[in-house]
Amino acid sequence: MVQENKTKTADEGGFAQEYLTFTLGPEEYAIDILKVQEIRGYEPPTTIANAPAFIKGVINLRGIIVPIVDLRIKFGVGKADYTPFTVVIILSIVGRVVGIVVDGVSDVTSLRSEQIRPAPEFAATVDTRYINGLGTLGERMLIVVDIEKLMLSGEMALVDEVTQS
């Protein structure tokens, strides 16, 4: 996937792609801005029985029932506490709407393909399969996440096994 992405951006002539960056504890992450539908404040969701701990429950987003995933619990970073500043990023992924809880949204950055380095293999709670690379922005290191792949993966338990491609 890393390879694939690199060639793709190279074909585009090194054009910059826009990323939404957010923080989970001390770490900074970046996701493709085109997958983001909106950003809203956290409201306590309705819990779902027997769901994994990182699935906080479902909320009502203008009449649509949207599951909420706490990425901090999933990635095991930061403290999963909910303050008035806790933010939910609503993602739109292949027709499905999912919300992710993060500590805060930083900004929107352009990253050119040469700014993204392949991530080395390392042991982490996140499978490196879902990491497109590491972006460098001055002193900052952004973990570029393939959010679509992550959200549709079996380990997120967001989709029924059958609907997975």
């Binding site: 779902i48 029932i65 949207v66 599951p67 499905r96 709407v97 967001l158 989709v159």
Partner: peptide, 25 residues
């Protein structure tokens, strides 16, 4: 409301609804 359109089937739950206060039940 369908729970499955954005989530998955949950055992023992046939769907969801939005209560008067905006919360999901």
């Amino acid at each position: 409301k369908s729970l499955e359109s954005n989530y998955r089937k949950v055992a023992g739950v046939s769907g969801a609804t939005i209560m008067g206060d905006g919360r999901v039940a």
